[in-house]
């Protein structure tokens, strides 16, 4: 049976920000991209780097030499080791979208009042009825 983990209070992660949490022994990065939340395993599928400690950036695209554009600002994660870029929304690698992706977890925003009905696991903090929380099922 999947278990519900309360990973963070929604207000903890500002837009464009992220938080590294540990749930059931797994390190997971949670990202707030324009008000939507996404979660990725903190382990780069390339060679095990701490992916979620990388840079949150956009993606550089170009129509040809000397044309530089940064698009989708805040939607990509650049691994702190070899710099591979991953789409935070899907976990897909930009260079190898079909063969390389970071493990993704679904994040739900749930009201404290609903959570209170249980069951859930909140390892590091207290869930209050009036708050909103980020929930990951594992």
């Amino acid at each position: 049976m999947a278990k519900k983990y309360v990973a963070a209070a929604a207000g903890d992660i500002a837009e464009g920000g992220s938080k590294l949490v540990s749930i059931a022994g797994r390190d997971i990065g949670i990202f707030n991209v324009s008000g939507s939340f996404f979660a990725l395993a903190n382990r780069c599928p390339h060679a095990g780097g701490s992916l979620c400690e990388g840079f949150i950036t956009g993606i550089a695209v170009s129509g040809g030499p000397n044309d530089y554009r940064l698009e989708r600002t805040g939607e990509f994660l650049r691994c702190p080791w070899h710099g591979w870029e991953f789409d935070i929304r899907t976990g897909q690698s930009w260079c190898d979208p079909n063969s390389m992706r970071a493990r993704q977890f679904a994040v739900k925003v749930e009201a404290g009042a609903d959570l209170a009905k249980g069951p859930y696991i909140a390892e590091t903090f207290e869930v209050k009825v009036e708050g909103e929380y980020l929930v990951i099922e594992l």
Partner: peptide
């Protein structure tokens, strides 16, 4: 250089 001045950013 590219990544964090050529270093592991972490």
């Amino acid at each position: 250089r590219m990544m964090a001045s050529g270093q592991r950013a972490d």
